[in-house]
Design a binder for these strands. Structure first.
Length: 375
RNA sequence: GGAUGGGUAUGCCUAGCGGCGAGGGCAGCGGACUGUAAAUCCGUCACAAAGAAACACCGCAGGUUCGAGUCCUGCCCCAUCCA
């Protein structure tokens, strides 16, 4: 399933086989929480900017339009017209991000819908059933993502519950994959390591879940308030205790620099809202650092966002024009910015893979970081 | 010429109905955002300034009052209507 092609230190170049095609790793998954990449991005756009995997969310799609409706329509792939891999997050992150709207119990989590306030219960079994209905390529285990500021006792408790939840997820997923009317009967399941910034809890949890034989292993609960150094330290401490023959997914991360540092520490999968959200907010990634197109200094700038960039925005439009679109709140402005940023991320991942293939990742990383810090 | 309604800070719009050192919105300028409750949020937006000390033309000029953006008088503009 996961084939290791090359190693450089802890960094890995691999291929992950799925029923929806092969994923070349390291990979950045493009985030489309509600089965849409915000910013009016179409499937055709994603093909053009060479997206490999799209990410959607269990909680959001359960609330609207409803996973049963998506199942009736043939699953998420058919629904959104995307035939390549899709990873669905389990709703675990919403336990964290919707903190004001939920209550955690052993059986699962009681949410109040952020759309209409109605009560929703989601536990490990429900999350698996929803993800099975969505028929994503990869399902994520239902976890709790504790805050970086949570104290040790809370985190220990929470992680132990997440482990019990993982066992339930695995059983339920096996059951669902065995059912006749399941759309994707080869749906994969990734476990999620937690433990906040406590290395011993992380390591202990990594050991326990490694023995449970999942298809991949995520590191969750990072980039939620701790420093970059703490995050890198946790990755260094934890990843060695995850299975060597399974992909490692760092959830929700991150900046281009975060990705380069994390690839070096053994991460294979990434996802982050930065390229899409920052794009919508006019913040653009370039090889010379990040620029904010809303700034007055770009008013008369007739250059593309980045010289030499082949994305749909840079091939035709100037910074001044895109700035105007953003200021005029024209949708095209956001769209072009989101496409540029996703293209930047997807292209950087291609460069990373090429560098790993060539055994030159260390040099590539150093050069890329140096370039990007110029601004 | 008459009637009515208005003129509020750096651009525009607006709250205000005797305690205002004047509230809000837009525009402008800047920032934040890491498994997306986010095309969102925050700051700034007269001058000066951490001081019981400084201090704005609320169209203009007077007046009433302890106190006026608010009330009164006159004037100047703007809008609409009528001659």
């Amino acid at each position: 399933m996961f084939r290791l092609l090359k190693r450089e230190g802890r960094a890995k170049r691999g291929e992950f086989q799925t029923v929806h095609g092969v994923i070349q790793t390291p990979v950045f998954m493009n985030v489309g929480t509600v089965a849409a990449i915000k910013g009016a991005v179409s499937t055709q756009d994603l093909e053009e900017i060479r997206t490999q995997v799209e990410l959607s969310n269990t909680y959001h799609l359960h609330v609207r339009p409803g996973d049963k409706i998506i199942k009736q329509l043939g699953g998420l792939h058919r629904f959104m017209s995307w035939d390549r891999p899709i990873l669905t997050d389990s709703g675990g992150f919403q336990v964290f991000s919707l903190a004001g709207l939920r209550k955690i119990k052993e059986e699962g989590v009681y949410f109040n819908s952020h759309i209409d306030g109605r009560k929703i219960f989601m536990g490990p079994e429900e999350s698996m059933q929803i993800q099975s209905n969505l028929a994503s390529t990869i399902a994520m285990a239902f976890d709790e993502c504790p805050s970086a500021r949570a104290d040790r006792a809370y985190v220990k408790n929470s992680v132990e519950r997440t482990t019990r939840w993982l066992a339930r997820c695995k059983n339920e997923m096996q059951r669902l994959n065995g059912l006749e009317d399941t759309i994707n009967r080869q749906q994969l399941l990734f476990a999620i390591n937690q433990g906040a910034v406590y290395p011993d809890i992380r390591i202990e949890h990594a050991k326990v879940i490694s023995e449970m034989e999942l298809d991949g292993y995520a590191v969750g609960g990072l980039a939620v308030g701790e420093t970059h150094e703490e995050m890198y330290h946790i990755l260094e401490e934890t990843i060695p205790f995850l299975p060597k023959d399974k992909p490692v997914y760092l959830m929700g991360v991150g900046t281009p620099a975060n990705i380069l540092e994390s690839v070096e520490r053994g991460v294979d999968f990434f996802d982050c809202v930065y390229p899409t959200r920052n794009g919508r907010h006019g913040h653009l990634y370039t090889n010379h650092g990040k620029i904010n197109l809303f700034n007055a200094k770009y008013e008369l700038d007739s250059r593309p966002i980045e010289e030499g960039c082949c994305c749909p925005a840079c091939r035709r439009y100037s910074r001044a024009y895109i700035r105007h679109l953003l200021k005029a709140k024209e949708m095209l402005g956001m769209r072009l910015c989101v496409l540029h940023n996703l293209y930047f991320y997807n292209t950087m991942m291609e460069e990373i893979r090429a560098a790993l293939d060539a055994g030159e990742f260390a040099a590539y990383k150093k050069q890329k970081l140096q370039n990007m810090s110029q601004n």
